[in-house]
């Protein structure tokens, strides 16, 4: 019994211990604007609900003054690619991609929506004195209104 226990422990170790002890959490690229007032932890577990809720609110109730919009998400969370331009969800390193692949959750947003920010926002992002977080927030606010 004791020997069996020891053997199992050793086998267990051999099987699993070979893997590298490295950072397991996926890379979450930094956003360009101000942080969410609700906090990142809240957003991590609730973002899908906020988006879904907005969709229903807009489509079924015709309410266009919703608090969140996917346009803002992809703008503020734009990740610049090798050419310095924001990349789409099909490219490696897109904000949504790492976590969604890690969790095996399919994103269907971008079958219709654009995963890159608008051209105006890209222009703002590429401006030579880089825009401050407040400027970006101001732009996003405008986008909302």
């Amino acid at each position: 019994m004791k020997r069996l226990f020891a053997i199992t422990l050793v086998l267990f170790g051999l099987f699993l211990g070979t893997a590298q002890a490295e950072g397991l959490y996926p890379d979450v690229p930094k956003a360009v604007g101000n942080p969410h007032p609700e906090g990142s932890a809240f957003m991590r577990i609730n973002h899908m609900k906020l988006m879904r809720h907005d969709r229903d609110d807009t489509m079924h109730n015709g309410n266009r003054d919703v608090k969140y919009s996917i346009k803002e998400c992809v703008a503020c969370h734009a990740v610049k690619g090798p050419q310095g331009l924001p990349i789409s969800v099909k490219e490696e390193g897109h904000f949504c991609k790492n976590c969604h692949e890690f969790a095996a959750v399919k994103i269907d947003c971008f079958q219709c929506h654009n995963s890159k920010p608008t051209e105006e926002f890209t222009a703002l992002l590429m401006r030579d004195p880089a825009p401050t977080a407040d400027e970006i927030s101001a732009y996003l606010k405008e986008l909302r209104e």
């Binding site: 170790g13 699993l16 211990g17 893997a19 590298q20 002890a21 397991l24 959490y25 996926p26 932890a41 991590r44 577990i45 976590c99 890690f102 969790a103």
Partner: peptide
Amino acid sequence: DILMVKQFFLGLMRF
């Protein structure tokens, strides 16, 4: 946060 849950279990598998 299922990512943390996955991190926990992947971690267990790597001691």
